[in-house]
Design a protein around this nucleic acid. Structure first.
Lengths: 155, 155
DNA sequence: CAAGTCAGTTCCTTTTTCAGACTTATGCTG
DNA sequence: CAGCATAAGTCTGAAAAAGGAACTGACTTG
């Protein structure tokens, strides 16, 4: 597998994996959604090596997930803010959190609870069909080749 | 970071990342959802080295995502089938596919189209609140510490 | 009975990752 | 203004993971 051109594969999953398909990147994104924005803050909360953090942040900026915004001119300093493209990763993160809550829990209960400000309740994320609104299950989905297909790929 | 105990972190995202947080594992799961089940089939469609494939399949079986089921006794052969725990990863995969469709597309259009058998239409997956049914956005969610929290973690 | 298939395993090389020290620019403190 | 702190990196050598390719073993098929 040539990981450097994974984002050009005729498979949307591969293209997403090219961006978020490694452990550190997913953990960095978790921190972003928890409103962490600065290099030192990422580093100390994740205990990631500075070298890798630097590299991963650059990659996320290159892919347009984060924007590097100056917050101080005197000593030039920047923070990393989620773009819309980055914010749109939220369902992926929430789906992973929910799966972890459901299948990897321990006796202490879930680590975090999520409140939906719109309705004021604690909730779980549910994935539904955009057309009929019913919850989706793998076995009820049929896959067709789309216009962007080459041979046979994707999920 | 001690990757070998990531599945015991007080953070549901970390625990999920422990299982699916690498590129090969995600691509293997894609194939599973496309009904690939056998060693040779995974290997030839992904071009993964046999060594890594063997290791990843073992890990997925150990975590209870796949079940190794015999399909021939004479020469002992097995296939790898998604368990319920594995099928429940579907929203993660679909969220990734949808993000790829939306943000990593090229001029040829999307590689695959998904039909919901229940309603018969081509659809996109949408993540909604389990309580009010409205689509979820990162900025409308407030996070509270849950009973399983230690210090401060998770998304 | 030679060749092929399936599901791995073994061995060796190359690439990534890790841990920690070093750098650069600046601000704060006495 | 010397000395320490802070933020955001870069550099380096050792350890771990991934890649490539050949090898094994238990059959099956022509």
């Amino acid at each position: 597998m040539k990981w450097d051109t994974l984002d050009e594969e005729p498979c949307s999953l591969s293209r997403t994996v090219a961006v978020v398909g490694d452990r550190w990147t997913l953990l960095i994104l978790r921190e972003c959604f928890l409103r962490v924005r600065r290099f030192e803050a990422f580093q100390s909360s994740l205990q990631i090596t500075r070298h890798l953090l630097s590299e991963r942040l650059k990659k996320l900026v290159r892919f347009g997930i984060l924007r590097r915004v100056p917050y101080s001119e005197a000593p030039k300093r920047h923070e990393y803010i989620l773009t819309q493209k980055g914010l749109d990763l939220y369902p992926i993160i929430m789906a992973m959190v929910h799966w972890g809550d459901t299948h990897m829990g321990d006796e202490r209960g879930r680590p975090l609870l999520h409140e939906h400000k719109a309705c004021g309740k604690l909730f779980d994320p549910v994935m539904v069909c955009s057309e009929c609104g019913e919850p989706l299950h793998a076995k009820q989905v049929h896959v067709h080749a789309g216009p962007g297909q080459r041979g046979a790929d994707a999920a």
